[in-house]
Simulated scan of single mutants.
Amino acid sequence: MTSPTPADLRRWRRHLADERAEAAVYRDLAGHRHGEEREILLALADAEGRHAAHWEHLLGDQVGPPHRGDPRFRLLAWLARRFGSVFVLALAQRAEARATYDADVDATAAMAADERIHGEVVRALAARGRNQLSGTFRAAVFGANDGLVSNLALVIGVAAAGTPTHLVLITGLAGLLSGALSMGAGEFISVRSQRELLAASNPSLSAGDALPHLDVDANELALVYRARGMTVDEAERRADEVMADIAVLGSESREYHADDPSTEHHDLVGTDVGAALSSFCFFASGAAVPVLPFLLGLEGGSALVVAMAAVGFALLVTGASVGVISGGPPVRRAVRQLAIGAGAAAVTYGLGAVFGATIG
């Protein structure tokens, strides 16, 4: 075996530091979990430990002092120790997706395969958290974004028409309150209606109670499974299994309910009250940003500049948050949010200026 070059040693040490940092992330995340998720995360940490041992073996007595891992992993470790949230899992998913072992001649094929599978494991864990957040988080993000964009557009449009500062402030506060109430009421009605529709599609418990009394020869239970989307053969086989289970146990089989696809996404909708409160609070918090400069006593162009800068920063944060939680590129999502907000503000500023000039 040829002696490693200085470049090889640097690369191996970098990989070693990254593997140790990744293992620390998963151990810290496991500290915030219980049961199966904790075991999965600890297993991932053990796998990263095996990868670290590979680089330690290659380095031998040239391991050197401990190196700091990639800044991404250090950030993940810091977040995991303090929050342990789905955001950290989403970031870890992106980190796993950027693994480079496929192109590294000194990494084994098993290590490269491990990293790909790790990405899928973390994706599945993050999906659990996304599912739990989906209803309320959707309302919160959309509420904050709508508050930022709509109230900034309102304030800028009114200010561009030459309206006095105190009237701009009153208009902004009125837009904040009316918009927050409208968003909260809309989310409540939307989520309540969706949950009612899903509830109407749930299997009937009384139908399950009738199973022991069905005609075994006719077994009309197969029609239920066919209506749920199974083929004729699948439906008859499943119905026979359920009826056989009832015959053996001497009681009804609740497996009847397990095959209905209409119940799969009920929990993803969230609660009506939670969605309404999130939408109200986050719209109000977003809509307050463009009003703050006027509340603090700024006037004219300076107030508008500060309002636009503050809203721009907030749009970048909300866009990046959506990117992280969805597993997408946060920078691209942040820029997209900023561009949408800037476009809306520019349109209303232009209309306000035209309207103000016409009136004047």
Results as ranks from 00 to 15, higher is better:
T2F: 14
S3P: 06
P4Y: 03
D8Y: 02
W12F: 10
R14V: 05
H15N: 15
L16G: 00
E19T: 05
R20K: 12
V25Q: 04
V25C: 10
L29E: 02
L29I: 06
G31V: 13
H34V: 12
R38G: 08
E39M: 09
L42A: 03
A45Q: 06
E48P: 00
A53D: 14
E56C: 06
E56N: 03
D61L: 11
Q62W: 06
Q62G: 04
G64R: 06
P66N: 08
P71T: 04
F73H: 14
A80T: 09
G84A: 11
V86S: 06
V86L: 04
F87S: 15
L89M: 12
A90I: 02
L91A: 15
L91F: 13
Q93G: 02
T100L: 15
Y101R: 14
D102G: 14
A103Q: 09
A103S: 05
D104S: 09
A109W: 05
E120I: 06
R123Y: 10
G129L: 07
R130D: 00
N131M: 10
S134Y: 12
G135A: 09
T136N: 02
A144P: 01
A144T: 06
S150T: 14
S150D: 09
N151Q: 05
N151H: 04
A153V: 10
T163P: 07
I170A: 15
T171R: 02
G172D: 00
G172R: 00
G172K: 01
L173K: 01
A174D: 08
L176I: 04
A185Y: 13
G186C: 08
E187K: 12
F188G: 00
S193T: 15
L198V: 13
S201V: 05
L205T: 13
L205R: 14
A207P: 00
L211I: 14
D215S: 08
A218H: 12
E220T: 14
L221T: 00
A222F: 07
L223T: 12
Y225K: 01
M230H: 12
M230I: 08
T231Y: 07
D233V: 15
A239Q: 07
A239R: 02
A247Q: 12
V248H: 11
G250R: 04
H257A: 11
D260E: 10
E264D: 15
H265I: 11
D267I: 08
D272V: 02
C281M: 15
F282N: 06
F282Y: 08
V289E: 01
F294N: 01
G297W: 07
E299I: 07
V305D: 06
V306I: 08
V311E: 00
G312V: 05
T318K: 01
T318H: 02
S321P: 06
S321G: 13
G323V: 00
V324K: 03
V331Y: 10
R332D: 13
R332C: 10
R333Q: 12
A334L: 10
V335W: 04
R336L: 12
A339D: 05
A346E: 09
V347Q: 11
Y349W: 13
G352Y: 01
F355I: 15
A357Q: 04
A357I: 02
T358C: 10
